[in-house]
Amino acid sequence: MGGKKDDNERRSSRGVTRRGFFTAVGAGAVGAAAIGRAQAPGEAAIATAGEPAKVALRINGRAYRLLVEPRWTLLFVLRERLGLSGAKAGCERGECGTCTVLIDGVPRYACTTLAVEAEGHEITTLEGLMNGDKLGPVQQAFLEEDALQCGYCTPGQIMAAEGLLRANPRPTLDEIRTGMSGNLCRCGAYTHIFKAVQKASELKKAGGR
């Protein structure tokens, strides 16, 4: 991921001094709260460049309190801070879908979501689809339908399918194609992926969670 644009030198040359920031913010701030607790009406939440701020995230039903820099994406926090490596890093530009997670039950790209923006929302990752030690219905369907080759896109495909089926439990093939269109598979396993989504819909109907 580390292109030459991301080097530290350039980053710090763009950095903002804490004092400079607070002067600017102070000019009109109605009331400023550190991030990490509920934002009161009329209050702005603030985090300073390069400084970890307290953030409360709800992931797979569990509450986490973390120190997070403003520029950290949700994907970075999940993988590198919490060890939840289900969501994969691919393009990191919203193009491939392998980082897909559910936010309030809806599929989104974790690579284009700042962790500070995910505060107050319910986040579900691949790990959250497990039934204890057993695979959840969408995971099971991908296994049974052999819906992968290399598997790199699979976590994102499964999360996209989960989101699709929550919104539309009995999708048509066309609806599946559209619903899954934000997830690329470089191995071209699409036919099997679409079958797996149909299968997952049946498994869920038959009582899978």
Binding site: R10, R11, G42, A44, I46, A47, A49, E69, L114, V116
Partner: peptide, 11 residues
Amino acid sequence: MLPNFNYVRPA
């Protein structure tokens, strides 16, 4: 990694 920035979420 994204470059550094401040973040503010006004109400």
